[in-house]
Design a protein around this nucleic acid. Structure first.
Length: 427
DNA sequence: TCTGGGGTCCTAGGACCC
DNA sequence: TCTGGGGTCCTAGGACCC
């Protein structure tokens, strides 16, 4: 095989402790203090500021176990404030776009950039310029990793965060000591190698990124499928994954949540399922899709020793739809089929599958089932009202009004940037 | 009292068809 | 004793990501 020299350059820009940093943007008094951001229902710790990491508090642990320790250390806990994080994420991405339009928003706090056009410039310098500009314009600290493939850019980003001396920027692109660098990185830190594969690899004497890069390719293919082969190639500098600059419509849409309390009452479950389906179908219409399958699931609290039950059921719709009342009706029918009395439920959810473009359907191509329907006009109107006047200005009766099952968010910060009511005032 | 939510891709195996 | 074979579609499950 002849290997073409790879001429691309990728940067991975990753926000440092993103959720915690968002909370700090509007609370300068929290500089230097440990911050924990909690999952839904204030359950687990899902984001940690560096100060909190230094306290030795791990990721994903139940918050109640550590709350006291955090408060004692002068730290603060926050409920997740997704409205705030999504808005600040958009601002960060807009700044990154100033550097290059060739950008893939990879997650709420990460983006891949093509730096191929900056080949003749000092890449480290570009990296530092990105760090400085994003912080100045948004208040969010970021780290930049640069490499000839996405996997190497990710790896470089890991190094930029781990070693303070790099000041948040590390480039492995044409690095003179690339072998030494790769030998510093454990396999479990490689993008695409999770806990299962990393255990398997170390059992087989492959401990570092360098080991994996140099491992036998047939062997990798056999035990780690084509996904593992791609990762190994990317470590060699052969790019197998290009930027995805346009976001593809989702193939499945899930809306599920744990309840703020245990729920036995069937009506409350109906409210929850109706509400989740309202959310899911909003997402569905937002991407101009219709769904063919509806799934509903529910379950008890698996951390308790009380009687356990969980179940799910899927049905195919008569014809694909994005009409919320119809989707709710279907979901409630499924709920009725899987509901059993006598259990305390903790979680329920809905899934939409068999998703296709709203125009692509149709038994009769000249008469799209959903699009020309009066129902689509109704949905558009509802969506527009809710967008302008706030979510659930118009809602469905089956969602209920009290929503006593809904999630706990006791430590919520204000929506500084997306709600007039919460806007910051300077006294 | 208190343990997240939402996605992707790949593979193996069964059903079905000719 | 002998019991096709190849293609396609679907689903479940397992791995991964943030």
């Amino acid at each position: 095989m002849s290997i073409k020299p790879n001429s691309k350059i990728y940067a991975l820009v990753d926000c440092n402790s993103f959720y915690a940093s968002c909370e700090r943007v509007f609370r300068p008094d929290l500089r230097g203090k440990p911050i924990a951001v909690l999952s839904n229902n204030d359950g687990c710790i899902v984001a940690r500021s560096s100060e909190l990491k230094e306290l030795g508090i791990p990721m994903g642990v139940p918050a109640f176990k550590y709350e006291e320790q955090i408060l004692k250390a002068g730290g603060v806990l926050f409920s997740s404030n997704y409205e705030l994080y999504a808005d600040l994420s958009n601002r960060v991405m807009n700044v990154l776009e100033q550097f290059t339009p060739e950008l893939e928003v990879y997650s709420i706090d990460e983006a891949f950039l093509s730096l191929t056009g900056f080949k003749d410039r000092d890449l480290d310098e570009i990296g530092h310029e990105i760090v400085k500009t994003v912080f100045q314009w948004t208040g969010i600290p970021v780290s930049v990793g640069i490499g000839g493939t996405k996997t190497l850019a990710k790896l470089a980003n890991h190094i930029s965060k781990k070693y303070k001396k790099f000041n948040g920027v590390f480039s492995i692109y044409r690095h003179p000591k690339v072998d030494t660098v790769l030998d510093f990185v454990g396999v479990d830190k490689i993008w695409g190698i999770g806990s299962q594969y990393s255990r398997f690899l170390t059992q087989n004497g492959i401990n570092t990124a360098k080991d994996l890069r140099d491992a036998d390719s047939q062997w990798i293919r056999k035990y780690m499928t084509v996904v593992g082969s791609r990762t190994a190639l990317e470590l060699k500098g052969i790019s197998c994954m290009d930027l995805d600059m346009v976001s593809e419509p989702k193939k499945g849409i899930v809306s599920s949540r744990s309840f703020g309390k245990q729920v036995s009452d069937y009506t409350e479950l109906e409210e929850a399922v109706s509400t989740y389906m309202t959310r899911a179908s909003e997402k569905l219409r937002y991407q101009k899709s219709i769904a063919s399958y509806v799934t509903v699931f529910l379950g008890t609290n698996r951390f308790k020793s009380t009687p356990q039950y969980s179940n799910s059921m899927t049905t195919k719709l008569h014809e694909p739809s994005a009409y919320t009342p119809e989707l709710i009706r279907t979901a409630l029918r499924l709920l009725q089929a899987i509901y059993r009395t006598g259990f305390k439920y903790k979680k329920a959810g809905v899934m939409l599958g068999g998703i296709m473009n709203q125009y692509q359907v149709a038994p009769d191509a000249f008469e799209p089932a959903y699009v020309d329907d009066r129902r689509s006009t109704v949905m558009n109107t509802v969506d527009q009202v809710n967008e302008r006047l706030g979510r659930d200005t118009l809602y469905y009766a089956s969602c209920g009004k009290q929503q006593e099952w809904s999630m706990k968010r006791e430590k919520l910060s204000p929506k500084y940037t997306t709600s007039w009511k919460d806007i910051l005032t300077v006294k």
